[in-house]
Amino acid sequence: MRRTLLALARSGDGEAFRELVEPHRHELQVHCYRILGSVQDAEDLLQETLLAAWRGIGDYQERASVRTWLYRIATNRCLNALRTGSRRPHEYPAGRSEVPLPEPTHRRAEPSWLEPYPDALLGIADDVPGPEARYEARESVSLAFLAALQQLPPRQRAVLVLRDVLGFRADEVADMLDTSRNAVTSALTRARGALAQERPASDRESAPLPDSPHELRIVDEFSRAFEAGDVDAVVAMLTDDAWLTMPPLPLEYQGPEAIRHFLATVALCGKVRHVLVPTRANGQPAFGWYLRDPRTPIQHAHGLLVLTLTGDRVSALTRFHDNSLLPMFGLPRSLRIEGRADDER
């Protein structure tokens, strides 16, 4: 069947080509996302990959599977985009804090352009990776893993994803990147060492299963405390080493007291009411964050908030300011709640 589709595609049959590559579309987009850190860039590079494959189908010599061939194209397109700076232009979100931000626990040298990935798009086929893989599918799309991955040089990033996430053999990766097996092994060793420093081992096994009663209980408790503006209740749910980050801002706050100070002086200060609308991102519970206008029943988008859970507690709060991300999660820029205009009076 595959050979028939391949022969038809080589003859110019577009429908046969689509049938040949469609099973790999979602996993290729997630692959581009892992390397680029941006959902929007990943979609652009996916389209470039499929176009390049269509144009080059006549040169495909079947030395590797169609899947491996497509990964070769996608990986090199992503590396070229990183090398030439041809990705979408990045800017800080227009919305700025109306109060000064407290001094962070840690300040990164550069902004992190990582974007969240909607769970609804995580229809990936690499959840049963090859024998070389070291990371489970759920872990390999987590924000902690992606944030650490973005700190690696692009080529090391690609090698680590191809080897440790997707489970390709060293010889296969060397062929994809037009390099030697020794170069791949060396890059992987450096990448693993850097990733271990950037992302210390965490108690991943204790994280509740997605959408389980355990997870839903924690998420509901957090949502109620946050919407009530109860800083003490929110902080009581944090682990002792919890982080608060706000990509792309290079400011990071670690520990309950640093996060308490930020919440009390910035996020939950004043009389503004907050509304959290549940969604999911990167295999983790998340919320569309809205601010209630006390003069109207309108709630204005205030970005996206993603939780990382460890046991019964929250080990990371990741706030994304960019409201343009919300439509990818099926969330509007504003909400109108009928019959609540008098709630605040």
Rank of each mutant, 00 (worst) to 15 (best):
I35P: 00
I35Y: 01
L36Y: 03
G37E: 05
V39A: 12
V39T: 02
V39C: 02
A42S: 14
A42I: 05
E43W: 02
E43N: 06
D44S: 10
L45S: 03
L46C: 03
L46F: 09
E48N: 09
T49E: 00
L50G: 07
L50H: 01
L51M: 07
A53V: 03
R55V: 09
R55T: 08
R55H: 09
G56Y: 01
G56D: 09
I57T: 04
D59E: 11
D59Q: 11
A64I: 03
V66T: 08
R67F: 02
R67D: 05
T68D: 06
Y71Q: 00
Y71T: 00
I73R: 02
A74F: 06
A74C: 08
T75I: 08
T75S: 13
N76M: 13
N76G: 05
N76H: 01
N76F: 00
N76R: 15
C78W: 00
N80G: 06
L82T: 05
G85T: 05
G85V: 06
R88G: 03
R88M: 10
R88S: 10
P89A: 15
H90Q: 15
H90N: 15
E91I: 09
Y92S: 14
P93R: 11
P93Q: 13
G95N: 11
G95R: 14
R96C: 13
E98V: 11
L101E: 12
L101T: 12
P104F: 03
H106R: 14
H106Q: 11
R108L: 14
A109K: 11
A109N: 06
E110H: 10
P111M: 07
S112H: 10
S112C: 14
W113K: 10
W113N: 12
W113Q: 09
L114V: 15
L114Q: 13
E115Q: 14
E115A: 13
E115W: 03
P118V: 08
A120R: 14
A120L: 13
L121R: 07
A125N: 06
D126M: 06
D127W: 10
V128F: 09
G130R: 12
P131Y: 08
A133T: 12
A133R: 02
A133G: 15
R134M: 12
Y135G: 09
Y135R: 14
E136F: 07
R138V: 08
R138T: 07
R138A: 15
E139T: 11
E139G: 04
